[in-house]
Amino acid sequence: MPNIQQVPAHFSPFFWDVHIDELKPALHSRFIIERLLNEGDHHTLHWLFKAYSMDEIRFVIQTSRNLSRKTARYWQYFFNLKEEDMRCFGKSSISPDNLF
């Protein structure tokens, strides 16, 4: 559970599609973690690692399908994860084999 109650208002450029004042770190943890891992900078990552435990962040990385491949690859190496243990590297449901 996050130990921080609000996402800082100056992070609003990273949450352009939502009202940042309505984001609750405990309730919207997956969304916040995914967004900041994908779009954030070193300031947001510093906050992220204060707001959430390493285990919470690792769990999102392993189970998310919303991380870019570049982002997922970086965090794979950071957390020493196996590709097959990360959902974002799984087989897509839309592939050339499934089109016909």
Rank of each mutant, 00 (worst) to 15 (best):
M54S: 11
Y74H: 14
F59Q: 08
D85F: 07
I33R: 00
T44N: 03
F89T: 11
P2C: 13
L81M: 10
A9G: 06
K82A: 11
R69E: 10
L36F: 04
L37R: 05
L37T: 01
K82E: 14
E56N: 08
D21S: 15
Y52E: 02
S93E: 14
T63H: 10
L36M: 06
L99N: 04
H19T: 12
I33W: 01
N66K: 10
L23I: 05
E22P: 00
F89H: 09
E56L: 05
H43T: 15
R73T: 14
P13H: 08
I20K: 12
H28T: 02
D17A: 14
F11R: 09
W16P: 00
D41N: 15
F14Y: 15
I61M: 00
S29F: 06
V7A: 07
F100D: 13
W75H: 12
K50S: 05
Q5G: 06
I4T: 04
A26N: 05
F14S: 09
P2G: 13
I33V: 12
K70N: 13
L23S: 07
N38F: 05
R73P: 00
C88E: 09
H42D: 14
D97T: 15
K70P: 03
F100R: 13
P25D: 03
R87C: 05
I57G: 03
F11M: 08
H10I: 09
R65N: 14
L45E: 10
H43C: 11
Y74I: 12
K82N: 13
F14V: 08
M86D: 01
T63E: 15
G90M: 04
Q76G: 10
K82W: 00
H43R: 15
E39H: 08
I4Q: 09
I57W: 01
F15G: 06
N66V: 01
F78Q: 12
L36K: 03
F31Y: 15
R65C: 10
W75Q: 04
T71M: 07
L23G: 03
R69L: 13
R73G: 05
S95R: 12
D85E: 13
A72L: 07
F49A: 04
E83R: 12
F59D: 10
L27H: 07
C88G: 02
L99M: 11
F100A: 11
I33F: 03
D21L: 11
F31P: 02
G90D: 13
L36Y: 03
F100W: 08
V18A: 08
R58K: 13
I32Y: 00
E22L: 09
W16D: 14
P8W: 01
Q6H: 14
F49D: 01
T44H: 02
F31K: 14
R65P: 00
I4M: 03
N98A: 13
L48D: 03
L27C: 01
I33E: 00
H19C: 11
T44V: 06
E84M: 07
D21A: 15
K50P: 00
F79T: 07
W16T: 09
T63K: 07
L36I: 04
C88L: 10
Q76M: 15
Q6R: 15
R69Y: 08
D17C: 05
K70M: 09
D41T: 12
D41P: 08
D85R: 08
G40S: 13
M86A: 04
A9S: 14
V60W: 00
P2W: 00
T71D: 03
P96M: 06
W75S: 10
K50F: 02
F31W: 03
A26V: 05
V7M: 05
K24P: 00
I61Y: 00
R30A: 11
P2I: 02
